[in-house]
Amino acid sequence: MYKAKVYITLRKSILDPKGKAAHQALQNLGLKEVNDVRIGKFIEMNIDANSEEKAFELADKACSQLLANEVMEDYSIEIE
C-alpha cells in the first residue's frame, strides 16, 4: 500500500487572487520576506499497488483525468 500526496495549484501564468490576497495579508503582518504565495489543493490517496511506479502511474491517471484540470492547473505527486 502506498500513499500518494497530490499538490494542485493554478498554472504559473494564471493570476491566483486568493494567493495574492494572502500575500498582502502576510505583508501587513510584517513578513516582508514572503515574496509570493500560491494557494492550491492538497489531496491524499491510499493506493493498492505492487510497486511505487505502479502507484505513481495510478495517481497520475487520477490527476490528469479528474483531480486536476490541466487547462488551468498544474499538479505534482509524491509517493511514499
Partner: peptide, 16 residues
C-alpha cells in the same frame, strides 16, 4: 467544459 465538449476552463471570478 469539464467533459471536453467545449474548450477552456472556469476560474473563480477575478474578485473572488
Amino acid at each position: 467544459l469539464e467533459a471536453n465538449l467545449l474548450p477552456g476552463a472556469m476560474l473563480h471570478n477575478e474578485k473572488l
